[in-house]
């Protein structure tokens, strides 16, 4: 909290510490939302410029800093995504060494799922990332995305239903990514 207060008062070194502490949170979230390393890198820069400019407006009595930062990150990603085409998380990004450690069937399954997650609506993908990557409770997800608790629950249910349908179709050998139903 001391670092945040110092950064709020304009201390550039404190802001650098804040960046180091939270860059992975922003980068990994942006990567999962946007699907490309270059876009995640751009997002990291843009988001922290925005954080720097608006940090004085952060109120620790209203939310935790990470909740506020997630909100800034998702606002950026959701706005950015409105202008962009769908994406897939490319398995080519996984190193050959890591690839060799996993059976091909499992890799195929994960590749399929990563593509299926990429084909969810942006709002559904946001709740899936917050819940199943960052392990956040529904109440905090609602606060980050500024939606009611019931909306978080229904988006998670719908997203999982869509992904499950895809998994089941793929396991039965009938499906492909293009058959995954995408709906809100």
């Amino acid at each position: 909290m001391q670092i945040i207060l110092r950064a709020q008062s304009g201390d550039r070194e404190a802001f650098a510490v804040l960046f180091e502490q939270h860059k992975n949170l922003v980068y990994k979230t942006a990567y999962l939302m946007l699907g490309e390393a270059t876009e995640a890198e751009d997002a990291l820069q843009e988001i922290f410029v925005q954080v720097y400019k608006s940090l004085s407006g952060f109120d620790a009595r209203k939310a935790a800093f990470t909740t506020w930062l997630y909100r800034v990150t998702f606002n950026y990603c959701l706005n950015h995504r409105r202008k962009k085409r769908p994406f897939t998380l490319p398995l080519e990004d996984i190193s050959p060494v890591l690839k060799s450690e996993f059976p091909s069937a499992r890799l195929a399954e994960e590749e399929f799922l990563q593509q299926a997650i990429g084909k969810l609506t942006d709002k559904q993908r946001a709740v899936i990332i917050l819940r199943y990557f960052w392990d956040l409770p529904y109440a905090e997800i609602a606060q980050i995305l500024d939606v009611p608790l019931g909306t978080v629950k229904s988006r998670i249910d719908l997203a999982l239903k869509t992904l499950r349908k895809g998994i089941e179709e793929q396991e039965s050998g009938r499906g492909s990514v293009s058959q995954v139903e995408v709906c809100e």
């Binding site: 650098a16 860059k23 980068y27 890591l98 799922l113 199943y132 990557f133 999982l160 998994i167």
Partner: peptide, 24 residues
Amino acid sequence: QVRSALQRGASQAVPSQNAWSGLE
């Protein structure tokens, strides 16, 4: 399966080493 796919999808995703200098 979803957790695992997300974890593996982001496992290699790290900011570049000059991210701070670019930002600063």
